[in-house]
């Protein structure tokens, strides 16, 4: 199941964010898109997920233009965790997760054995099975985000896109979520694409990093090879040095400090 963007120009109303963008999402890997604010990473993800129609060029899902496929069919192959979703008041966890099965359901076939199995598996994978009957409003931010991820997992798609999944989560939950993504990628071969704003997390967990600035893709590849101090300085305007993360061996960005601490 391949996903790629061919020469796309994307923007909102009269404002163009990116032009002539090409991207091949590596199959079966975990890709992170990073870059400074307003560099167009969320816009790119929205274009890849069919939420935003390119003004020029095309997004190809399995070789065919994503816009030409029926919406439900795309939803069976491509899952998306959007930035802003609204959980209806008073909905239980299992109900919300079950909604993720919509792409697989028909009018008179709204709860099959396959649906049930998928929901059970998704809740188990995200560790929310004990919360199954609880109301989503009563959960903490970290738990709620896990429930939304469970909903996307229940969709059982070979490709999952995540738009800034770690915002509003505290550090422990951020790490937990990213490790969950890596596990899903390794165990089930799901292609993952996530927009992240933490450089070090991206380097640690992603197999493939796409660095954007001002609407263009500046560099992409294995973080261990492409993440250098010059790149970070050029893209983020941050003087830094790179060392190896003592836990994982991946690049760790240490910003340079202008404050001299008196010993």
């Amino acid at each position: 199941m391949s996903l790629s963007a061919r020469d796309i120009t994307i923007g909102y109303d009269r404002k163009t964010i990116s032009e002539h963008l090409d991207l091949d999402v590596p199959e079966g890997r975990f890709t992170a898109i990073i870059g400074p604010n307003a560099c167009g990473k969320s816009t790119l993800l929205r274009a890849l997920s069919r939420l935003l129609k390119p003004q020029a060029g095309e997004v190809l899902l399995d070789g065919r233009d994503i816009g030409s496929r029926p919406a439900k069919e795309v939803a069976r192959r491509l899952g998306l965790l959007p930035q802003s979703s609204i959980a209806p008041d008073g909905i239980a966890v299992a109900e919300l997760v079950a909604r993720g099965r919509f792409p697989h359901q028909k009018l008179i076939r709204q709860w099959s054995a396959a649906d049930e199995a998928a929901v059970v598996a998704a809740m188990a994978a995200t560790g929310v099975t004990e919360l199954s009957g609880e109301l989503v409003d009563t959960l903490s931010g970290g738990q709620r985000q896990r429930v939304w991820v469970a909903m996307v997992l229940a969709q059982q798609t070979p490709i999952v896109l995540l738009d800034e999944p770690t915002t509003f989560l505290d550090i422990a939950h951020q790490i937990e979520l990213l490790e969950l993504c890596v596990r899903l990628n390794r165990e089930q071969g799901t292609t993952m694409v996530a927009v992240l704003h933490d450089l070090n997390q991206a380097c640690r967990y992603a197999d493939h990093v796409v660095v954007m600035k001002a609407g263009r893709i500046v560099e992409q590849g294995d973080p261990r090879t492409i993440v250098t101090a010059e790149l970070i300085e050029g893209v983020f305007g941050l003087g830094c040095r790179i060392i190896d993360d003592p836990e994982t061996g991946t690049p760790l960005v240490i910003p340079r400090s202008s404050i001299v601490r008196l010993a």
Partner: peptide, 11 residues
């Protein structure tokens, strides 16, 4: 009701 993005993502 879950939001346009979430609904679109589900097809």
């Amino acid at each position: 009701e879950m939001g346009e993005d979430a609904a679109a993502a589900l097809g």
